[in-house]
Design a protein around this nucleic acid. Sequence first.
DNA 1: GGACTTTGTTCGAATGTCGAACTATCAGTT
DNA 2: AACTGATAGTTCGACATTCGAACAAAGTCC
Lengths: 405, 405
Amino acid sequence: MRKIDTRDFQRATRTTSREINRRIVLNLVREHQPVSRADLARRMEIGRGVVTSIIQELIETGAIYEGATGHAPRGRRPTMLFVRTQDRFAVAVDVRFSRSFVMLSDFAGNELALESFETIFDPRALVAELTHRINAMVAAHLGVGACEGVGLVVPGMVDRSTGRVLMAPQLGWRDVDIRDMLAEGVGLPVHIENAPMACALAQMWLGQRGNHNDNFVYVTVSDGVGAGIVMNGQLIRGATNSAGEFGHNSLDPAGPQCLCGALGCWEAFTSNQATLSRYLGRELVPVWGTSVHPPVTLTIEDLIGRARQGDQRAASAIVTTGHHLGIGIGHIVNALNPSQIFVGGEITAAWDLIGSAVREGILERALTPGGAATPVTPEQLGGHPRLRGATALVAAPHFAAPRVA
Amino acid sequence: MRKIDTRDFQRATRTTSREINRRIVLNLVREHQPVSRADLARRMEIGRGVVTSIIQELIETGAIYEGATGHAPRGRRPTMLFVRTQDRFAVAVDVRFSRSFVMLSDFAGNELALESFETIFDPRALVAELTHRINAMVAAHLGVGACEGVGLVVPGMVDRSTGRVLMAPQLGWRDVDIRDMLAEGVGLPVHIENAPMACALAQMWLGQRGNHNDNFVYVTVSDGVGAGIVMNGQLIRGATNSAGEFGHNSLDPAGPQCLCGALGCWEAFTSNQATLSRYLGRELVPVWGTSVHPPVTLTIEDLIGRARQGDQRAASAIVTTGHHLGIGIGHIVNALNPSQIFVGGEITAAWDLIGSAVREGILERALTPGGAATPVTPEQLGGHPRLRGATALVAAPHFAAPRVA
DNA sequence: GGACTTTGTTCGAATGTCGAACTATCAGTT
DNA sequence: AACTGATAGTTCGACATTCGAACAAAGTCC
């Protein structure tokens, strides 16, 4: 039950009904392919004649294509339909503190090419490097005009209307107009988003097929700790695109000092830095904001390796992180009642070690038994959630429900 | 950008475009009345002919009516249109721990009659009493068929699909089928919702005219502390209608014992009981769950009165509550980035005393300057937010955006 | 009274769904 | 090989709606 915003609505024209049904057909094909026209008519409880006409349009615009005829026990054999995702492409870019990644993928999220380089902190120089790499990658793998856009994921706050990065502490950016700079360089539309929201989009649009999950939260644990929220089948951005910053909510006013200045933030217990600091027995030290590279020391992957090799202190540091991760997830469960929680980040490689501690943490805080039982799913290894989210930024608008009323 | 749920979608029929535009017209009239057909056509960028036809339908169904002709500097004078809210009615019911309220109101939320009685904890007896009072109230004030439904607000978890109250600790209820029992008694459709969500609905549908606020949170502070969340113009219910339970998120693991069993919940710092306990220097004691009435002792209103009369300890207890209220609001601001926070509950009567403490609490926890500046608006006195929410439960479906795709 | 302006209605063209009739294609039976 | 029954896909007229222009209604200004 949505309220109509009388300052910003979309009225129906004489083609609106067709737009709606065309989008529904496209999504039905996407989730049930291979599928026939007659099958679509049954699923939509609509005449086959209408389906014929809609399919014709979708084939003409190149959204779907006809495959081989299927098999039927009786009667004429159906022509199977498929969504054209294999030869429509997007460039996904993930800018992180240490390294940046550029991936070429099709609309289904399949990887065609992937490269990375050490992140350049100067925005202009970074854009120049990205432009060069993107153009080369597209030229090497595709024909002209096959790439439909660039998805750009950054670790920081983004202003959706202007495409500017308002603040990215890890990169030392304030109010950087990277979207338009990059769009000019590559001559393609560029879509920008922050990391947790992109991960949520990836899960929503490129997750497992048959994943009908309209209410979930994607928690990212990395240098920072944040969340991408999907409720009612929509990404929750908030008023100024900064929803999901659970990382700086306090678990304990007597807790460790956080890099944000406050005490006992969730992030100060669970970020990679926090876990390493706990192991090393020292306080969190800001390593960003300087233009020099970080001191190459122990990484979270190293720590997990040590834990696996029997380092009890390493294991303890990781499990404690898992426990606090669970407490924070419990808070999210109470606040938003998602049907599932996804967790992404390096720490998920140690899920076999921390899973039960996470669950205990949730049990400590979840108000209801149902909430306490909320499934928590770690990101699969090598899944590149941010890059897949960048792809989703380009692909999803072609599949989303039309805006109406 | 919503994802289409392929298991539960609404395709367009040949009347869908009209439905959409009719609903838009209805809402435009609602927010801009008095307004003429020509004005609507301009606002919608549509032909006047279409408006004529839509308005005719809306007049025939009784949704709007023609008023006097307006004034124009030149040309034919316009016929002004109005939404018919004055003679369409709903019964609003608010069941609380101490007393229950029954209100008869029109679709604009105007009060026609209001009565209250001591809450009966036995569900069957309560339904009998409500049935009697509602039928009498409708008979006394209205003709036959004028009341379109009953909105029922309860302090507990509700299963929207079955209308059952899953758990209402204050009433001692578990899995009570109150909606259908009451619907049978009064012969009207009954809509049920929990208190914080109803308050959010009231703000969304019956708030100030011109209140274009698509992202806000309504925090209720009473015996419990909860929140109703509105994002993207929609109430956020979560997977099982229990979103918004911020009250049992922990502010401090070393904090006071909460009635839920955990330590340092937001509620344990800010509920009315918590404030009173702080003043009285004792721990929180569960007064519910017993069938006997609560010991009639000090109320939060008394405490505010004492503070106003110079009782420093009372003032201190209230201000401390305000500070913790602000801290929790800061957490909400980080999590959801609303454009505004509303606060309801008895404590708002002391807003002049606690407002600055609330703001300090927010400043302590809000991550961004924008978040820290989020406006916080206390409910106006005597606003009956829960009852207005109950009215909104009945009225809102007539004005909501049609479900499509 | 006439020119001009604005509101509201009417009507044919364009676009879309709805439902039924029609064609195409297949398996099994005679 | 022809017949039968079933299913897939297309075509076409009826109905619903928007779109745009023409038209009637009702005012102001000179």
